[in-house]
Amino acid sequence: MRTQTPLRCDARAPIPARAGIGVKPIHYRELLSSKPALAFIEVHPENYMGAGGPPHAYLEEIAKHYPLSLHGVGLSLGGDEPLNRDHLARWRALVDRYQPALVSEHVAWSRFGEVALHDLLPIPYTAESLHIVCDHIDQMQNALGRTILVENPSTYVTLSQSDIPEPDFLVEAANRTGCGLLLDINNVYVSAGNHGFDARKWLSRVPGGPVGEIHLAGHSLIRDGAFQIRIDDHGSRVCAEVWELYRETVARIGARPTLIEWDSDVPELAVLCDEAKRADDTAAAAVELRDAAAA
């Protein structure tokens, strides 16, 4: 029997359907002194799982001025093994302490046996893995006492045993568990390039209802002779094609809280804010055009 946790966007600070940014320690001081207009701030909870010290001191201050989104990368929802209880307890402590407006994790695995691999690894999309992922989402939602969002991963291999299309797998997981979806449009674009599918068709299979957040990021293209692959390194500005997919998605489902994600070669705060502004402008234009067409 599944326990359904009602969808809620937090008691303390409901998150507006506008753009936020992911911040790193190098941004703390400037963020807190200049307090740019941003809808929310997203961080990886794994970087705040220490007992005390500067990370918590800064996050406490940030949380006074911005709604927070905690975006996990280490729980291994797609792992065959039971969720790691200690990790889940650390998650719980952070959710209790910071009351984030959004909580999310990935449809991927990162742990096996005694080892934490610290990467978002692909799962085959099968009835077996759907069952496991849904059990883990239930477990996480119950442990945290709230609804979570789960994100589509970027992938470099497709596994031949997959017999459920990726978007259908995600939507079915949301239907079964009541969780929401974090739609990472860059990930769809990266995977589409790597596996030769149509990103537009992929996105069109996801209804707007469960989508609670959108992620945008940059990626890189690696060429090795005839072989080329898109690497989801979050190390540059969002590319033109992903902006276009974002515009189309917002035109279809409406605006959502949208994150500018940047994890390698992290630029100064102003660049992140600039990308966030572009996301806001793009979403606003898309909504306006849609409303004009509907009128």
Partner: peptide, 27 residues
């Protein structure tokens, strides 16, 4: 496990291995 015998398939798996090592070495 991959659907076809592409000559570049090992490079696809290698992306994951590079990511794992790069992240841990960076830490």
């Amino acid at each position: 496990l991959l659907p076809s015998d592409g000559p570049h398939n090992p490079k696809r798996f290698a992306v994951y291995k590079n990511n794992v090592y790069a992240r841990l070495v960076d830490a």
